[in-house]
Write a protein that binds this DNA or RNA. Structure first.
Lengths: 347, 347
DNA sequence: ACGGTTTGTGCATACGAATGCATTATAAAA
DNA sequence: TTTTATAATGCATTCGTATGCACAAACCGT
C-alpha cells in the first residue's frame, strides 16, 4: 500500500513529464507544452483540465529539455575571481538578484587557483549559458575571444579592455580619481600617498591616473605610490612599507576600502597615529564596512545597483539580439564624506 | 570571403555538434560521443582522428543535451538567504569551490524578498539539479519535503530540523555555546548578557542553550538576552537596548561576529566604554573581520572548510545513490582567543 | 581452414519539450 | 443550407548526446 497516501498519482518517483500530464488530461503532449509556454490560443476548458492534471502529478516543465530545443537556457554565467573581498561578494550577490529580476538563473563560476580565466568561461559555455558576466579575471581578452566564437554575449563588469570589442560596465574611475584628488586638495592636503591594488587592473590604473592628473593640474605631484592587491593584509603591508622610510604624508588614498581598513589599522594600532587627526585616509568602493563606526571611512561610492542593473540589462538586450555597437557604459561615483579625512584648511 | 581567416571550419557560428565532428572525422556520431565520454574501447587511430576533428571545429560536448539523456546535470543548487553578512558570503564561496572540486557546477539561488524559500528550491529543481544545499532559508521543512518528492538529495548547511529526515551539517552549536560560557566563566565573568540573532534559527537557539546550561551548571544565570538578526545594525540596536536600562554586564556574548562588531562600536563610540577593559565582548563564527586590529575579537571559530567539505561529500554520496540513513553531521568549534575579553581573575 | 571469441563501430532509439504543419471542430457569412 | 474563415488541437519532427543491440573485422586456438 505504499504511496497511496500522496495525493499526487505517483509516476514511479520520476518527475512527471508533459506526456504524463497529457495522458491524464486526455490531450496531446503538444497541448500540455502549449499550456505552459502559452504561446497559442487554447480553450479555457482544455487549459483547466491540463493544469489540474499537472497539479495532480506535480508537473513542472523540465528546463533542461526546454533549453535543448529552444536553444535558450535562461542561465547567465557569472565569472568571479577567487577573491574574498566584500566588494566582489556584494557585486556578485547583486548580480544574482538582477539576473533573477530579468528571468535568468545564475551559474556562478569561481576561477579556481591555478585555473585560467578562460577555463572558467569555457565551463559556463559548456552549459550553453545565454550570456556571461565577468567581474574580474586575469585573461579577459581571451575570454572575450572565445565568447565571440560561440556568439555568446559577454559583459565585463568593473573591468575594461581598451580596443577589444567587448561591452563593459564600469564606474568612471578616471573621474572618480580626479574627484578624490580634488576633495583631498580642497581639504588642504598636499602630500598624498597612494596604496593601490593590483597594478594590472584597469580600475587601479584609471583611479590613479585620474587622481594624478587632477593633482598635477594643481601643481601637486604624487610621488608615493605602492602597489599590492585588494586585501586587508596587502593594505597593512603597503602601509608599513610606505611609512617605514619615515615618510609622513598628509593623506593616504587607497584604491579600495579593504586596503584602507588595513592601512588604518596599521596607522592606529602599530604606529600609534590618529586617523584623521595625524593622517587622513580615504577609500574607494563604499562597501558596507566603511560605515562601521570603527572605520567611518570617507570613500568614493560605486553605484552598485546602477552598475549591476546596467550590466544585466545590456546583457539581456544582447541575448535578445538587440545589440548595437560595442557599449562602454561609464557611471559616476559619488563622494561619501565620513570621518577619516581631516581638513587642514583654516576655515 | 568572410570567415576564411579562422582556422576552425565554421559551422555557421552555431557551436559544433558531435555530428559535425563525426562528419569531418568520417565516423558515426556515436563514436564521437564515445570518445568524449570514454566509456568504451576505441582504436587509437579513431580516437586521434576524432579529437583532431573536434579541435578543428572547436567542439565541446553540450552539457545540456548530455544532461537530458543521462538524467544528470552535474549542477548543484545552492540556496542562500537574502543576507549580506560576510559569514554567508564565505560559506557560499567555499561551497562553490567545493562543488567544483567534486566535478559540479553551482547554480546559486538567492531567495528574493517576498519569495518563499520553497520557491527558490523549486527554481533549482526546474533545472533538474542533482542536489541541493540550503544555507538558511525560512521554511526549510517544506523545502525538504518537495526535494523528497522529486527524490533530489538535500543537505542543510548550518541549519538543523529536529525530527525531519533531512541530512544536515552544522557545527556543534550546543557545545560551542558551552565552551564560550566556560571560557567567560573561567575569566571570571559572572554577569553575561547575550545578543542573539534570529530567534527562529536552530543555530541561535542551540548556542544560547549551550551557553545557558553550562552557566547554570556553575550557578550563574543568564538573564539578559536580546534577540535581533545577524547584522551590524541589529547588533548596535540590541546593544543600545541592553545598556539603556543602566545594565552593565561583565561580558556580552554575541551569537555572530557581525553582531559583535555592531555592539563593540556602540560600546566604544556611543557609550565611551573600553573593550575589553570596561566590558568584554565575544563573538561567534570567526569571519575574516574578527582578525582586523580594530576589533581583534575573541570568538568561536566555525570549521568552515570542514563543514563545506562534509556537506558536499555527503551530497555527492547521496547523488551517487550511496545513501544510508539520515545523517546529522556535527563539527566542533574552536575558541579563537584574541583581545576582546578581559580576565577578571587575579592571576 | 574453421568455429569461436574479442574488439571496434554503426544503427536506431530515447531523453522531454517546442513548433510547423495538417486536421478537425466551430463560428460567421452568404 | 452551404461556404469560408477561424479557433483549437494533434501529428511528426527537432534539439544534441548517450547507449543497447547488431554486425563486421580481426584474432585465437586447434
Amino acid at each position: 500500500m505504499a504511496g497511496s497516501k500522496k495525493s499526487a498519482e505517483s509516476t514511479g518517483n520520476r518527475p512527471a513529464t508533459s506526456s504524463d500530464v497529457a495522458r491524464l488530461a486526455n490531450v496531446s503532449q503538444s497541448t500540455v507544452s502549449r499550456v505552459f509556454s502559452d504561446t497559442c490560443k487554447l480553450s479555457d476548458e482544455t487549459r483547466k483540465r491540463v493544469l489540474e492534471a499537472a497539479k495532480q502529478l506535480g508537473y513542472r516543465p523540465n528546463k533542461i529539455a526546454r533549453s535543448l530545443v529552444s536553444n535558450r537556457t535562461n542561465i547567465i554565467g557569472i565569472i568571479v575571481m577567487n577573491n574574498e573581498s566584500p566588494f566582489y561578494a556584494t557585486l556578485t550577490n547583486l548580480m544574482i538578484t538582477a539576473c533573477r529580476k530579468f528571468g535568468f538563473c545564475s551559474m556562478v563560476i569561481r576561477q579556481t587557483p591555478g585555473e585560467q580565466g578562460i577555463d572558467a568561461v569555457t565551463r559556463a559555455l559548456d552549459y550553453r549559458v545565454d550570456g556571461i558576466v565577468v567581474t574580474a579575471i586575469e585573461d579577459s581578452e581571451s575570454a572575450s575571444e572565445i565568447c565571440r566564437q560561440s556568439s555568446v554575449p559577454l559583459v565585463l563588469l568593473n573591468r575594461y579592455i581598451a580596443g577589444a570589442g567587448v561591452d563593459s560596465v564600469c564606474c568612471d574611475n578616471l573621474e572618480a580619481g580626479s574627484l578624490a584628488a580634488q576633495y583631498l586638495l580642497d581639504k588642504g592636503h598636499r602630500s598624498i600617498a597612494c596604496l593601490m591594488g593590483d597594478a594590472a587592473a584597469s580600475t587601479t590604473r584609471d583611479r590613479l591616473a585620474g587622481l594624478r592628473s587632477k593633482a598635477e593640474e594643481r601643481n601637486v605631484s604624487i610621488d608615493w605610490v605602492e602597489y599590492g592587491s585588494y586585501s586587508y593584509e596587502s593594505g597593512r603591508e603597503m602601509c608599513r612599507k610606505l611609512l617605514a622610510d619615515g615618510k609622513r604624508p598628509d593623506a593616504i588614498f587607497c584604491s579600495g576600502d579593504i586596503i584602507a581598513f588595513g592601512a588604518m589599522d596599521v596607522l592606529r594600532y602599530e604606529l600609534g597615529l590618529r586617523v584623521p587627526e595625524d593622517i587622513s585616509v580615504m577609500g574607494f568602493d563604499d562597501t558596507a564596512e566603511t560605515a562601521w563606526a570603527s572605520y567611518n571611512l570617507t570613500t568614493m561610492r560605486q553605484p552598485y545597483e546602477e552598475l549591476v542593473e546596467t550590466a544585466c540589462q545590456l546583457l539581456v538586450r544582447r541575448i535578445e539580439g538587440k545589440g548595437s555597437g560595442v557599449v562602454r557604459s561609464l557611471h559616476a561615483c559619488r563622494l561619501v564624506e565620513r570621518g577619516s579625512v581631516q581638513s587642514l584648511q583654516p576655515e
